[in-house]
């Protein structure tokens, strides 16, 4: 049990616990900010998986972009939403949530069984890559390799994502504009 393990489990615990707080809280703003904590903990987990560039991208795009966008949407959708939410009953387990808990627990059981039966550490391709030295070491510089691969091997998905990003940009701007006259 070295310091690496302890930090990893602390990060994982923070991620799952803050996600549970998001699920439990009635207050929309509080759940938004706990989601913030989840995203930061996930970025830390990406660093433990030796993907530092993905971690930085996660912080820049999710925390800088998506969360601010959600806060804007919350502020624009008025305060009666918040009042509505706070008037609900304060019990965590109400009758309307039982099916959701049931489905989540069933998914948890299925995933637990799948993970323990599959034994991902003993997969053939993982053993092969571990033997041939195809594993990322902590001292490696992966960003260089990611850039080269994005421009050669993954050029087609890269271009498809860029086209889709432009489409969503135009679509979101079109949907969110103020309408002068109703078209419907």
């Amino acid at each position: 049990m070295n310091i690496e393990h302890i930090l990893f489990y602390v990060m994982g615990f923070i991620a799952v616990a803050s996600a549970l707080v998001v699920a439990a809280s009635k207050n929309l703003v509080r759940s938004l900010f706990m989601f913030f904590v989840t995203l930061f903990a996930l970025a830390g987990l990406y660093v433990f998986a030796l993907a530092d560039f993905v971690a930085i991208t996660q912080i820049v795009i999710y925390v800088g972009g998506v969360l601010v966008l959600m806060l804007f949407a919350f502020m624009l959708s008025g305060k009666e939403v918040l009042n509505n939410l706070q008037q609900r009953n304060s019990r965590f387990i109400s009758l309307s949530k039982v099916p959701a808990i049931l489905v989540a627990l069933l998914f948890a059981i299925v995933l637990y069984n799948a993970i323990t039966k599959a034994q991902p550490n003993d997969l053939p391709w993982i053993k092969a890559s571990a033997q041939s030295g195809n594993v990322i070491k902590p001292a490696d510089n992966t960003i260089n390799n990611i850039g080269v691969n994005l421009m050669t091997r993954y050029l087609l998905p890269f271009e498809a994502v860029s086209v889709l990003l432009m489409m969503t940009l135009i679509g979101a701007a079109h949907l969110a504009r103020k309408e002068e006259h109703k078209i419907i």
Binding site: A19, A108, L111
Partner: peptide, 8 residues
Amino acid sequence: GLFCTGIF
């Protein structure tokens, strides 16, 4: 765990 919380 994150997936199940998201489903819930």
